[in-house]
Each structure stands twice: as structure tokens, then as C-alpha cells.
């Protein structure tokens, strides 16, 4: 049998390429951002498989600007063997990279419209490229509201950038935490309590949601209460992604391979399965 070669994607399907680490910066107690040598274009919301020699490989979303191809940013929370190995790496060392994989946030579909971004904790990382894209193409979008929740004030990611997003980016950044000790004068409460306060027109805005499934579920309900059409909701979902190429079968959600058909989905395309248990 002779099989036509579709595309020479061997480097993506097969082995990771070593990428030199330019810097490692600590964001919070357990979150670090790695700056790597650039690898070219990617879409906001896409991810790479990051590999540490002999330890393993994990999917990590790209957290830098899609407009800057000379560097590649990955924000990683050290929660397991591989992620702890990644966050222990130092500038000058290399990390293996395969990708980019998956779908992107609907930056084109959102053009000319208000945007509401709802996220929590480390979920802001895959949305930062979308935020950078909006700031770099600000005239293309209407009012933009970022609603961001974290467990505590010190677990807020990229907090040092919020003022510049507000001032130079003309983005409304509303934050809240689950609990605050001491001098926090911001809001306390879950991220869904920020929805009624967004100045973006929720009923017509494109919504981008990234967080654990529980957060996504409550957020979709919260947006629906403000007359948001579910057709305008996009969610980034998490499943066990081992290969990135829709071959290993682990990341299925109903008929979807989250690594290939996602991680960013139009909500209505996955609602049937998302709303059921243990699917």
C-alpha cells in the first residue's frame, strides 16, 4: 500500500525540539513564567507540549504576545512531577517544545464587538495572548472587560500588568478574591459576582472563559442571567492531553479531541457533553 504524505509534521508528531530558556521569572508562590527562544507564529489560546529530558511532557498554554515571534512565553504552575521539573529549570538550559497545538480564541469573530473575559487563577495565562492581541489591535474591539478571580490576593497572576492594561490598553480589569487577609481593599467573592459590574455589553459581547470546569459552569450560568447568548460564549477546556495530535485518545469529550478540536471551543459545540457528568 502506498500512502501519500500529507505534511511533513514529523517534528510535531514525534520528538520535541530543544528551546533555549532566556529567563525564568517567578509570578507567585508556585507559578513561574519561562521565556524561551521564539518559534514563530501561534494563535492566542494554543498550547505547546513542554518536555524535560527523562522526566516527561505536559501541555502548557502559550502566555505571551502572538505579535512577538522572537520569544515564547509559558506560564507554569508547579503542581506535579513534570511541572515542578519545568519550573526548576534555569536560564541557559533547554526545554523540549512540540507545537503549537489546538484552537485559538475567536479574535476575528470578536472584531467590532465588546469582549468579556472571565477567568480565575492560572486560567489567565492562556488568555493573556488574547489580551495582548486586543491591546495591539485596540481599534478592532469595543469595550473590553476582564473579570479575574483568585483564591487570595497574592495568588493573582500578572497583577503588576493590570494598571498598564487599564491605562494603555483601555481594558476594564475587575478582580476579586475568595478570601483576603489584612490590607486587601479589593473585592471578596467569586468571579461570577463581577459579571453584573462589567461595563462591556454582556448581552452582545463575545465571552472568553478559562478556568476549571466548575468555574466555567457557574460563569456560563452567570452570563446567561445577563442575557448573554450561549452562541457568543467560548470556553477553554481541560482534558488529559498526552500527544497533542489526536492519536492517543486520552483527551476525548464526546466526539471532540480537546487537543485538536479544542482547547478553545464555542460553548454550544460542546454543551451537550460538558453539561453531563463523567464524560
Amino acid at each position: 500500500m502506498t500512502i501519500a504524505t500529507k505534511q511533513n509534521l514529523e517534528s510535531i508528531v514525534g520528538a520535541p525540539r530543544p528551546a533555549k530558556i532566556l529567563s525564568v521569572d517567578r509570578n507567585t508562590d508556585d507559578v513561574w513564567t519561562l521565556r524561551l527562544e521564539g518559534q514563530g507564529a501561534f494563535g492566542p489560546g494554543q498550547f505547546n507540549m513542554l518536555y524535560v529530558l527523562g522526566v516527561g511532557e505536559v501541555p502548557i498554554s502559550i502566555s505571551g504576545s502572538p505579535g512577538k515571534t522572537d520569544e515564547l512565553l509559558h506560564t507554569v504552575r508547579g503542581v506535579g512531577g513534570v511541572t515542578n521539573a519545568i519550573t526548576s529549570l534555569k536560564a541557559g538550559q533547554s526545554v523540549g517544545v512540540r507545537g503549537p497545538f489546538g484552537t485559538s480564541w475567536p479574535m476575528a469573530a470578536a472584531k467590532g464587538r465588546d469582549v468579556v473575559i472571565v477567568t480565575g487563577g492560572i486560567g489567565l495565562a492562556p488568555l493573556r495572548p488574547a489580551i495582548y492581541h486586543i491591546i495591539e489591535n485596540r481599534a478592532d474591539y469595543g469595550k473590553v472587560s476582564l473579570l479575574y478571580g483568585a483564591r487570595t490576593p497574592k495568588e493573582m497572576l500578572y497583577a503588576d500588568e493590570f494598571d498598564s492594561w487599564r491605562e494603555t490598553g483601555d481594558i476594564e480589569v475587575l478582580t476579586t478574591v475568595d478570601a483576603a487577609i489584612g490590607a486587601w481593599d479589593g473585592d471578596v467573592g467569586v468571579v461570577t459576582t463581577l459579571i453584573p459590574r462589567a461595563s462591556a455589553d454582556i448581552s452582545d459581547a463575545v465571552a472568553m472563559i478559562c478556568g476549571p470546569e466548575v468555574m466555567t459552569r457557574f460563569t456560563v450560568a452567570g452570563l446567561a442571567e445577563r442575557n448573554q447568548s450561549k452562541d457568543n460564549i467560548y470556553v477553554s477546556l481541560e482534558r488529559n492531553m498526552k500527544c497533542g495530535t489526536a492519536h492517543c485518545g486520552h483527551c476525548q469529550l464526546g466526539p471532540k479531541f480537546v487537543c485538536k478540536d479544542g482547547p478553545v471551543f464555542k460553548f454550544t459545540d460542546v454543551a451537550h457533553w460538558f453539561e453531563k457528568r463523567e464524560v
Binding site: 518536555y51 527523562g54 516527561g56 498526552k242 492519536h247 492517543c248 485518545g249 486520552h250
Partner: peptide, 24 residues
């Protein structure tokens, strides 16, 4: 077609990736 992907390393700095049948 499900497979598990495993990475392992030895003390000489050689790492291997193996792919084996997995089950849902």
C-alpha cells in the same frame, strides 16, 4: 487506538519515550 506515552531516563543522561496500548 488509545496509547499511553511514557518518558523515562537513565543515569547516563539518556531518555526514551515509549508508546504503549492504553485503555479508557
Amino acid at each position: 487506538f488509545c496509547t499511553n506515552i511514557e518518558d523515562s531516563g537513565d543515569l547516563n543522561g539518556v531518555a526514551t519515550r515509549t508508546r504503549s496500548w492504553d485503555s479508557c
